[in-house]
Computed example of a mutant assay.
Amino acid sequence: MQISLDSPPSAPQPANAYYSQVARVELDGGGVMLYLSGQVADGDTLAEQSRGVFETIDALLKAHGATLADVINIRTYLTDIGRLHEYGAVRREFLTGTAPTSMTSEVSRLFKPEALVEVEVVAAVSPR
């Protein structure tokens, strides 16, 4: 097993923080696990922020040879759980196949004061 940490230049870079956006775990059998840090995005509405988050996640996955179809787990943090349906509608635009395992939680705030949503994912990529 080999582990590498990365913030690929093809994706938006972390703002005002020191962390890696992707932990890539190369498994002995040839598969790869990708653990993405929580992502937030700019935008005036929850839908705009959600789209930005999934666009960033998509870019991070592509930088490591994966797609949104490889996502097996998703964790979502919303500042208002009553707006879950708004986020869910955007999520379904991006995750169109079999639904991954999921956790959604309401939080009082996120590290970026204007952020309404933060999403982190785990993806599993089979050997090709």
Rank of each mutant, 00 (worst) to 15 (best):
Leu34Ile: 08
Val90Arg: 11
Thr67Phe: 02
Val90Ile: 12
Val25His: 15
Gly82Gln: 01
Tyr87Gly: 07
Ala69Thr: 03
Asp80Pro: 04
Asn73Glu: 15
Thr67Arg: 08
Leu34His: 11
Arg83Thr: 00
Gly82Leu: 00
Leu34Ala: 11
Val53Thr: 14
Val32Gln: 12
His85Gln: 04
Gly65Tyr: 05
Tyr35Gln: 13
Ala63Phe: 03
Val90Leu: 04
Ser37Glu: 03
Thr67Ser: 13
Glu86Ile: 06
Ile74Thr: 12
Thr67Asp: 10
Leu78Lys: 00
Asp28Gln: 07
Ala41Asn: 02
Ile57Tyr: 01
Ala69Lys: 05
Val90His: 11
Thr76Pro: 12
Asp58Pro: 00
Leu61Tyr: 07
Leu36Val: 13
Tyr87Glu: 05
Asp58His: 00
Phe54Tyr: 15
Glu86Asp: 14
Gly43Asn: 09
His64Lys: 14
Leu27Cys: 11
Tyr35Phe: 09
Ser50Trp: 00
Gly31Asp: 15
Gly31Ala: 13
Val90Met: 08
Gly31Pro: 15
Thr45Asn: 11
Gly31Leu: 02
His85Tyr: 02
Tyr77His: 07
Asp70Cys: 05
Tyr87Pro: 03
Thr79Ala: 00
Ala89Gln: 11
Thr56Asn: 07
Leu61Ser: 09
Leu36Ile: 12
Ser37Tyr: 05
Leu84Tyr: 05
Asp42Trp: 04
Asp44His: 08
Gly52Leu: 14
Arg75Tyr: 06
Gly82Thr: 10
His64Val: 04
Leu36Gly: 08
Ala63Asn: 13
Phe54Met: 15
Ile57Trp: 01
Gly38Lys: 07
Leu27Phe: 06
Gly65Asp: 02
Phe54Ile: 12
Glu48Val: 03
Ile74His: 02
Arg75Ser: 14
Glu26Ile: 08
Leu68Thr: 10
Leu36Gln: 09
Glu26Asn: 11
Glu55Asn: 13
Val25Phe: 07
Val90Glu: 09
Glu86Gln: 06
Asp42Ile: 05
Ile81Gly: 01
Thr56Cys: 10
Ile74Cys: 07
Ile72Asp: 05
Gly52His: 13
Asp42Lys: 13
Asp28Asn: 14
Leu46Val: 07
Gly31Ile: 07
Gly29Gln: 11
Leu34Asn: 14
Gln39Val: 07
Thr67Gly: 09
Leu60Tyr: 05
Ala41Phe: 00
Asp70Ser: 07
Ala66Lys: 01
Leu27Pro: 12
Arg24Trp: 06
Asp28Val: 09
Asp28Glu: 09
Leu78His: 02
Ile81Gln: 03
Arg24Ala: 15
Arg51Met: 10
Gly29Pro: 08
Gly29Tyr: 02
Leu34Pro: 15
Arg51Val: 11
Ile81His: 04
Thr76Tyr: 05
Met33Thr: 11
Ser50Met: 04
Ala41Lys: 04
Glu48Thr: 07
Thr45Ile: 00
Gln39Thr: 04
Arg24Asn: 14
Arg83Ile: 00
Ile57His: 05
Ala63Cys: 10
Ile81Lys: 02
Ala89Ser: 13
